[in-house]
Write a protein that binds this DNA or RNA. Structure first.
Lengths: 249, 249
DNA sequence: TGACTTATATGCATAAAGCTTCTATCTAAT
DNA sequence: ATTAGATAGAAGCTTTATGCATATAAGTCA
């Protein structure tokens, strides 16, 4: 910083504007039993008491947005090392009845088996709800969450956040490697296709899907085969990031 | 709002967290003479004095993010009625030396001829700088702004914002109708192709481009032809939004 | 051993996209 | 009036991606 900049700072009044609160919300998704799923927390306090909310938290004054998202992932969702990507910032004036809160939504992806521990210790305030998308393709719009015993009412604008996350996921699935964040390290091409079908909500053609995945160069055959299959075991593949950094954001 | 929520609000302390400032920055782009261009404002105050910055402003406590973006478009960029879309939120702790400022970047598009009035009245503090993208395809990364007399140094993280805007634009150009926001109401297919080539930074095949545009059903022939052309005048087309709402976000 | 089921490969039809070439239509020069 | 020059626009061929049907391979289990 230059000397003149330092001088400037001493005369600057940062209290000139009334400031909103800034939060991050996490759309932590997975694919469970052939359907997209999202991690929700039951609200025990007002507002929106007893509704279900995305894990979130306020952004600290000395904390970057990305750091806040990872902190929420750790502390509220009890997970670590997920694929995390900023999604959209929700800034309607009345989106939270308490006060003005601007929320930066992040979406995060983890394979289904990574949720088991967190859900066990949660004593019912955490749940991995099925996501019910009622629009075709990439139409967009809010989506609902469904638990074991029916629909789970979502707090605030969380249905919109969830809808936008599904939209983004559908859009990125085919030209980026996000899909692999939903699978364990070793997987069969059938599992990969199941994940794609769950996210997209459509059936895909098997030979074409397989060809496309292999042609993209994202997957690497291991020579190993799955075990415990009732019939012919499929070959196990591994995700192989492209050497050329040629992915969209 | 329920009675219990009202009761809750009376006991809630909104001053619990130290809050960051929230701003919006506008990447207002166009295509001028076959090259992408962006509207910049010369900074006359510290910090980053004499550097060039994207038009921006703080978000009012009773103002939505989208409303703030449109206000900046009107007041700082002196434009109205542009295509405006939220891009990304920049939240690094030290991105502004004055204080913690989280900035929600919006990108906006206007045809080149719409800038003339604003630039005339601006007495040199506004400029429409050429955007120099040095990465191919959708690699991503910061990009530079170039004025009449060479590079224009950008303030803060504005080069990153500009880079992300170019990336998003490249990504959306082919499957969404954003390209038409850069053209006047009536345009030739050649003009449309020129815009696409400027944004993408590559030459496109003419017959293929024409077929694709016509097949998508986005353009509508008017029967009119351009005037003043030195040779055979091309037919004028008009943008025709699809009846089915089938666009990605 | 053979029926059953899924994995994997192959061949064909269709559709989209790139490339080349041809024709049409205007201006401007002679 | 005629023609050269330049671009618009159309048509045909080739290549490539994708959908679909089918054949073969490789396991389990009765």
């Amino acid at each position: 910083m230059t000397d003149t900049e330092t001088q400037f700072l001493q005369t600057y009044d940062p209290a000139e504007y009334e400031r909103p609160s800034v939060a991050v919300d996490l759309i932590l998704m997975s694919v469970v039993d052939g359907a997209p799923a999202v991690l929700l927390i039951r609200r025990t306090e007002q507002p929106a008491k007893d509704k279900w909310a995305l894990p979130g938290g306020f952004v600290g004054i000395d904390e970057s947005l990305d750091a806040a998202a990872h902190r929420v992932l750790r502390e509220k969702a009890r997970m670590d090392d997920a694929y995390v990507e900023q999604l959209y910032t929700f800034g309607a004036v009345d989106r939270d009845p308490r006060m003005r809160i601007i929320s930066v939504a992040y979406f995060a992806l983890l394979p289904a088996d990574r949720y088991a521990a967190a859900l066990k210790n949660s004593s019912g305030d955490l749940t991995l709800a099925r996501v019910a998308v009622h629009w075709p393709g990439e139409t967009g719009g809010p989506v609902a969450a469904v638990g074991e015993d029916g629909p789970l009412p979502l707090a605030f604008d969380n249905a919109d956040m969830l809808g936008l996350a599904m939209l983004r996921l559908r859009g990125k699935l085919d030209y980026s490697s996000v899909g692999f964040a939903l699978l364990p390290e070793y997987f069969t091409l059938r599992q990969l296709q199941d994940v794609h079908e769950a996210i997209l909500g459509v059936q895909l053609n098997k030979p074409a899907f397989r060809r496309r995945m292999l042609d993209k160069g994202w997957v690497e055959a291991t020579g190993e085969r799955e075990i415990g299959a009732s019939f012919r075991p499929a070959e196990l593949y591994r995700f192989k990031p492209l050497s050329q950094a040629s992915e969209r954001t």
